[in-house]
């Protein structure tokens, strides 16, 4: 039976579910290394740029990059408290997102900050990336925690 929400105008319920078989392609080693406790970025030796999130190909010269391990230590560049979210993450609010500057990395990483003392968060605060004990093979397998 089609669910009907209204008759003037006629409004009915449509549903559409999709399963994707999503490949991480050449960045797959990032996730494989998480299971060994390592956080890997990619580096273009030609341009002297290190990318996190990793890019298999350098956007500046299009040469292939190399994997390098990073310390995961860094600082908050900017952060914010999420009081609302897309449907999938509404269950998590409030939560904290930040762009972090990482040691040895040229890009900023967008990540969650997990902390019991959110009132102490500030721009410039030292952080360290953590790796989930049980991997979901998603970007949410890493997050930042205050490190001071």
């Amino acid at each position: 039976m089609t669910e009907v929400f209204g008759i003037d105008p006629l409004i009915i319920k449509n549903e559409y579910f999709i399963e994707y078989r999503h490949s991480y392609g050449k960045t797959s080693p990032f996730f494989e290394n998480l299971s060994k406790g390592k956080i890997m970025a990619t580096r273009c030796e030609h341009c002297n740029k290190t990318f996190m999130p990793p890019r298999a190909d350098c956007p500046y010269c299009l040469r292939e990059t190399k994997w390098v391990e990073i310390s995961g230590k860094g600082r908050i560049h900017t952060f914010s408290t999420m009081y609302f979210a897309g449907e999938k993450f509404l269950k998590d609010v409030p939560f904290y997102l930040a762009y972090v500057e990482l040691e040895g990395v040229d890009t900023l990483l967008l990540t969650r900050i997990k902390t019991k003392e959110p009132e102490k968060l500030k721009i410039g605060m030292k952080i360290k990336l953590r790796i989930a004990r049980e991997l979901e093979w998603r970007a949410s397998d890493i997050w930042a925690e205050p490190d001071e």
Binding site: P53, G86, D92, L110, R112, A139, S140
Partner: peptide
């Protein structure tokens, strides 16, 4: 791959 799965959305 990187921004949406951690709860990223535009107002954020």
């Amino acid at each position: 791959d990187w921004d949406f799965p951690i709860g990223g959305y535009y107002s954020g």
